[in-house]
């Protein structure tokens, strides 16, 4: 929720007058291994993927072990699509490149032929997600920003639909996704502005501190909006709250992140609609027009 984020910024600022951080050594226990699923189906036509991995000890410090040799299927209510395991990326399973989802349909992911708990018996995992529609964007603008951080905010003009909506906002630079981690996603529900026009609300950010986000004259900046389900929205909110630093002032007790996969698995299988709007960074925008 944006309102709360503002509060956190102000108060973090007042607390930052004092606080300091330091790396410490801790002994943590282990827990049993669980299946982890990350995957999505969108309205874009492309090879959609599902990544299967397993949990590890917290200080494992290597890439998550992949789950290979699984049978992965997506049922869109009309047809069952079989996903093929990638030759180059172990644990990644892909649809055919001409595949796309249809808003309003419900997608079911089915995973078989895996034995995560290594008891000799094969397990099966399922998840379903409905694909919600998303409104088109009228236009976006890039605006230079130089307080607290230096960079750009992406202002967005669009109508929010009269139905309840849950959004993810992403940003691309020259066809490269900038917001490629959970950290950088901005999620928003419309309970405080349902059915309203957005009037150029700042919806994503590019920071000059990160080399891949530095904007030069002529760069194409694309804003991506996703229409997601309430469940996926809550998943991202929960996941972000556990991945972002927590403080005794604002954070509740740490808690496990929800999942829509059954059989004690972790992660999320999401279906969502996608729309885009682009702008080109011109001289009067880059660096606030001073360059």
């Amino acid at each position: 929720m944006k309102i709360l984020k503002t509060v956190v910024i102000i108060t973090a600022l007042s607390a930052s007058l004092w606080n300091c951080t330091e790396r410490i050594e801790l002994e943590l226990d282990s827990t049993y291994v669980r299946m982890v699923v990350e995957g999505s189906v969108t309205t874009d036509t492309m090879a959609h993927w599902v990544r299967l991995s397993v949990t590890s000890d917290y200080f494992y410090n290597q890439s998550a072990p992949a789950v290979t040799g699984a049978e992965v299927l997506i049922d869109d209510g009309d047809k069952i699509h079989v996903l093929m395991e990638s030759d180059t990326l172990p644990g990644w399973y892909l649809t055919s490149p001409d595949y796309h989802g249809v808003p309003g349909r419900t997608y079911t992911l089915n995973i078989r032929n895996v034995d995560i708990n290594q008891d000799g018996a094969m397990e099966e995992y399922n998840a379903t997600s409905r694909m919600n529609p998303v409104n088109p964007i009228d236009s976006i603008q890039l605006e230079y920003f130089n307080t607290f951080f230096t960079g750009y905010q992406v202002r967005v003009w669009a109508w929010d639909s009269p139905d309840p909506d849950w959004y993810v906002f992403k940003v691309w630079k020259n066809a490269v996704l900038i917001t490629d981690t959970l950290y950088e996603l901005i999620v928003q529900d419309d309970q405080f502005f349902n059915g309203n026009y957005t009037y150029g609300i700042p919806s994503q950010f590019l920071s000059d501190d990160k080399p891949e986000e530095v904007v030069n004259v002529g760069d194409t900046i694309t804003f991506e909006i996703n229409g997601i389900t309430e469940d996926y929205y809550n998943y991202i909110i929960e996941a972000q709250s556990q991945v972002f630093p927590q403080t005794p002032l604002f954070s509740g007790p740490p808690a496990n992140i929800r999942s829509n996969i059954d059989n004690d698995a972790i992660g999320f299988f999401a279906a969502y609609s996608v729309n885009y709007s682009s702008t080109i960074a011109t001289e009067d925008i880059v660096g606030g027009g001073k360059q």
Binding site: L26, L28, D29, S30, T31, R34, V36, E38, S53, V54, T55, S56, D57, Y58, Y60, S63, A64, D180, T181, L182, Y183, L185, A239, Q242, V243, P253, P254, A255, N256, I257, I266, G267, F268
Partner: peptide, 22 residues
């Protein structure tokens, strides 16, 4: 306090799997 006892990867981040409460 509740600490992680496991972890998993999701969208480029490492997320915790927690111990029992406190």
């Amino acid at each position: 306090v509740t600490f992680p006892t496991g972890r998993f990867e999701y969208m480029g981040n490492i997320a915790p799997v927690y111990s029992n409460r406190n």
